[in-house]
């Protein structure tokens, strides 16, 4: 464990807390993409299936349960919560996710760390899917132009978590002799690159005060 990965996990937890606060606490799904929420639920349910046999560390075990639980809770409330459904904009949340899921599934089968292990294929699929899972959310924000304050912090924290993981992989590459994780490194780069435009607008709007809404052109 290193500080970058720890801060990354904390930022990820923060993004969940912000989203849960908005959706469950604030009873509003305005500006939130259900498609992104559902893809994240797929990402965690596939990647953390090793909960059944891998007890690498209690820390990992607890956070995996937390991430699966939180992402399923968010999907549940967005799909079945009365006031959440009323504030969710289905026609604007229209990114064709099948064009994201199918290629990731093919890539997961073709490019993974052990072609003899089905779990490795599923694991690689989840890494690739996570890299593009934020697209429907960014697409929705772009369409709406204005980003509500809490939503902007949620997206920022979610983007920051993987950016911190990039630092974690760099650190591990430099400090651990034969550590190399090309799959997560490349996917993490793509994932973080997708946030660059949002990060820029987030910084522009927040430097005038934390609770200004973010404007996307």
């Amino acid at each position: 464990m290193n500080i970058f990965r720890f801060l990354g996990d904390m930022s990820h937890i923060l993004s969940f807390l912000l989203l849960l606060h908005k959706i469950v606490g604030g009873k509003s799904a305005a500006g939130i993409s259900l498609r992104t929420a559902e893809m994240y639920a797929i990402v965690f349910c596939t990647r953390y299936i090793d909960l059944l046999w891998n007890f690498a560390s209690l820390y990992n075990y607890l956070l995996k349960l937390l991430f699966i639980g939180a992402s399923l809770t968010i999907v549940y409330f967005m799909r079945y919560g009365p006031s959440q459904k009323a504030t969710y904009n289905a026609d604007e949340d229209a990114f064709p996710v099948q064009y994201l899921i199918a290629p990731c599934a093919v890539l997961g089968v073709l490019i993974n760390q052990d072609h003899s292990s089905p779990f490795e294929m599923v694991w690689a699929f989840s890494i690739y899917l996570e890299a593009v899972a934020i697209l429907p959310q960014l697409f929705l924000l772009q369409k709406q132009g204005e980003v509500e304050n809490l939503t902007s912090h949620y997206v920022f924290a979610l983007g920051a978590y993987r950016a911190l993981y990039l630092l974690n992989w760099m650190f591990r590459f430099m400090t651990e002799p034969d550590y190399q994780q090309r799959i997560v490194w490349l996917s993490g780069l793509v994932q973080t690159a997708l946030y660059c435009d949002f990060f820029y607008h987030y910084y522009q709007s927040k430097k005038g005060g934390l609770n200004k809404s973010v404007k996307l052109p």
Binding site: R5, D9, H12, D50, N54, A56, S57, N60, L63, K64, F67, Q113, D114, W123, Y165, N168, D178, Q180, Q181, R182, V184
Partner: peptide
Amino acid sequence: AMKRALHDEL
């Protein structure tokens, strides 16, 4: 072959 990466990260 690539070293089988133990999945010790989230």
